[in-house]
Amino acid sequence: MKKRTIILFMALSSLSVTSKAQWTVIDPTNLAQSIVNSANEIVQTSTTAQNMWSNFQETVKIYKQGKAYYDGAPV
């Protein structure tokens, strides 16, 4: 039994395989879709920023009108 175990161990250890480098896998469709998604996000972010700026300008305008009204100055 011991002899069989040693023989089995020696046989299995002789079958060890060395590791080798593999090629990098690139998915061009996924890469192109990621670029399109990023471009769409940039457009959406810039649109959101423009809307926020417009809202801020409107808020400043309303604030100045209210301040002028309560200060008694002509509008």
Rank of each mutant, 00 (worst) to 15 (best):
A73P: 00
L15G: 05
T48V: 11
Q57R: 06
K64G: 01
R4A: 11
S46P: 00
I6A: 07
I35R: 07
V36S: 09
Y70G: 01
A32T: 05
A32H: 09
V17S: 10
A11G: 02
D27G: 00
Q65W: 11
I62H: 09
I62R: 14
V60E: 12
F9Y: 12
N37G: 03
Y69V: 06
T24V: 12
T24Q: 06
I6G: 00
F56N: 01
I35A: 12
T59S: 14
A39P: 00
L8H: 12
A73Y: 10
F9D: 14
A73N: 15
E41F: 01
V60P: 12
T24N: 04
Q33T: 10
T47A: 03
K61P: 08
Q22W: 11
K64H: 02
T59R: 08
L31H: 02
S46F: 11
N37K: 07
A73S: 09
T24Y: 07
S38K: 08
E58K: 10
R4S: 06
F9P: 00
W53Y: 04
A32E: 06
T48D: 07
T45R: 07
P74S: 15
R4P: 06
W53H: 00
I26R: 05
K20Y: 15
Y63A: 15
N55Y: 14
V36M: 07
V25R: 12
K61V: 07
Q33E: 09
Q44I: 13
T59C: 06
T5S: 12
N55Q: 15
G72C: 02
T5L: 06
I35P: 00
W23G: 02
N30D: 02
K64I: 04
I26F: 05
N51I: 07
D71L: 14
S14R: 01
G72D: 03
